[in-house]
Design a protein around this nucleic acid. Structure first.
Length: 430
RNA sequence: GCGGAUAUAGCUCAGUAGGUAGAGCGUCAGAUUGUGGCUCUGAAUGUCACGGGUUCGAGCCCCGUUAUUCGCCCCA
């Protein structure tokens, strides 16, 4: 029996690699424009890092981690914990008080696969470590927005909330529990468990009955300090000034323990259950939790597969096209030349000069080779046989319009560059 | 992890009442000797996801497995 790829993984065949590279390169370009620097960390970490950083009770840590070596190591299920670990381990805080970092990497979570949800998946994301100022929150949101716009996406909603500080949340949570207690029997099993362990997550429910119960539940925002409220309002004011549209949703929460204060999600309606294409927020306590000095920080991550699904849907609808790979500059047709090394020598010289060129390796007919050249969308084609080798001359054909010049085999590169001029000289009327 | 659906050529899909597979696209070759795109002609390719069962006989029916997909859940 054929061996299959593991569940929830995928192959990227050449046609798909081109699309993915477009996403990665576009993201990289925008990150760079925002003066964020790339960071790369190991594929696996000590399991302890994620337990401490993400939280033992989270779904990710409690049931979705790929651990091995008796649980000592774990394939990274997200990047933030790794980035902070690396930030501390390499003392990046000594290089400058604000570190603006980005990453593009694959992650691993043992979830049930679905559209837009894989067991090995990819994210690009950014972390700004060292500033508690609201302006960096705005910077991050506009960074995410800029990348998606640069990619050609615009049909998404930016949803914002603020989760306040741990102390503020504590006061709120007891009120929320009080509100939910009477309805406990109507809650789902998971919500019942959460009522004790993490009541905030109940706000996130999709269950219509639970949503109803939550309608007149206390609102977290009302429990926040003036400082927290001002921080949030300043962000909103700035976003208005930048003409970035958003929706405030006081029920938006995040699933990882390290989040505090600002939280945001970029949501698309075209992805079914996996509607979040980009999500993030502040995590002002994480650096300290991982052994550093108290350091405010904020980050986000975006799902590359989800973005690709959206772009492919747009492509199908005729509203988008992926940029093509660089086309072949020259295809050399071998017309019965026994000594192929003469052609390969030519290819080698041209390639060294930066020309993308190829030839036949199947001893096919001239006609087939021409078709091949056409399929590769080659800019130029030339035919070389015994006659050409002897005379050191050949005909160089431009595929777009079929026009030809006589070219010198000893200076093909120059002739390609001078094509138009030579064409005029050789055919003054054509 | 729970519930539903699906699984036929590289791709998109047909396949009638169970009688051992087809189309379009793509690929390859040819349409007079060494020149592509259009057109025409022709060819190749499937253990009908895998394993078992029912039957004289299964792509079609039954069971299991695997994978995909939708919802829950989770999140990017």
């Amino acid at each position: 029996m054929q061996i299959q790829k593991p569940r929830g993984t995928y192959d990227l065949i050449p046609a798909e690699v081109v699309k993915r590279r477009y996403v990665e390169e576009t993201a990289r370009k925008v990150f760079s424009n925002f003066n964020f620097n790339e960071i790369r960390t190991p594929t696996f970490e000590n399991t302890q890092l994620f337990k401490r950083g993400i939280g033992e009770e989270t779904d990710i840590v409690s049931k979705e981690m790929y651990s091995f070596n008796d649980g000592e190591f774990t394939l990274k299920p997200e990047m933030t914990a790794s980035v902070i670990r690396s930030y501390l381990e390499n003392s990046l805080y000594n290089e400058s008080p604000l570190q603006k970092l980005f990453y593009i990497s694959n992650m691993f979570r043992a979830e049930r696969p679905q559209k837009g949800r894989y067991r090995e998946f990819s994210q690009f994301g950014a972390e700004a470590i060292g500033s508690g100022d609201y302006s960096i929150d705005v910077e991050m949101i506009s960074l995410g927005d800029s990348i998606l716009k640069a990619l050609g996406l615009k049909d998404y909603t930016i949803t914002l909330n603020t989760l306040g500080t741990n102390e503020e949340r504590k006061a709120y949570l007891s009120k929320l529990k009080e509100h939910l207690k009477p309805f406990e029997n109507q809650l789902s099993e998971t919500s019942k468990v959460r009522l004790e362990k993490n009541p905030l997550r109940i706000l996130d429910t999709k269950n219509p009955e639970e949503r109803k119960i939550l309608e007149d539940a206390p609102v977290l925002y009302d429990f926040l300090s003036d400082e927290s409220k001002t921080h949030f309002q300043n962000i909103l004011t700035s976003l208005d000034a930048l003409k970035i549209k958003y929706v405030v949703d006081y029920k938006l929460v995040r699933g990882l323990d390290y989040y505090t204060s600002t939280a945001f999600e970029f949501i698309s309606s075209e992805l079914g259950a996996q509607s979040t294409i980009l999500g993030g927020g502040r995590y002002d306590v994480l650096v300290e939790m991982l052994g550093g000095k108290p350091t405010p920080a904020i980050g986000f991550a975006a799902g590359i597969e989800r973005i690709l699904i959206l772009l492919e849907e747009k492509e199908k609808a005729g509203k988008f096209t992926f940029p093509e790979d660089n086309k072949l500059n020259l295809y050399i047709v071998n017309a019965g030349l026994k000594d192929n090394s003469k052609i390969q020598k030519l290819l080698l010289d041209l390639r060294a000069l930066g020309i993308k060129c190829d030839s036949d390796f199947l001893s096919r007919s001239v006609k087939s080779q021409m078709k091949e050249s056409n399929k590769y969308n080659a800019e130029f084609t030339m035919v070389i046989g015994e006659t050409e080798v002897e005379s050191q001359k050949c005909r160089l054909k431009r595929m777009a319009d079929g026009k030809e010049i006589e070219a010198d085999l000893n200076r093909i590169y120059d002739d390609i560059m001078l094509f138009e001029e030579l064409l005029r000289k050789q055919n003054p009327n054509g």
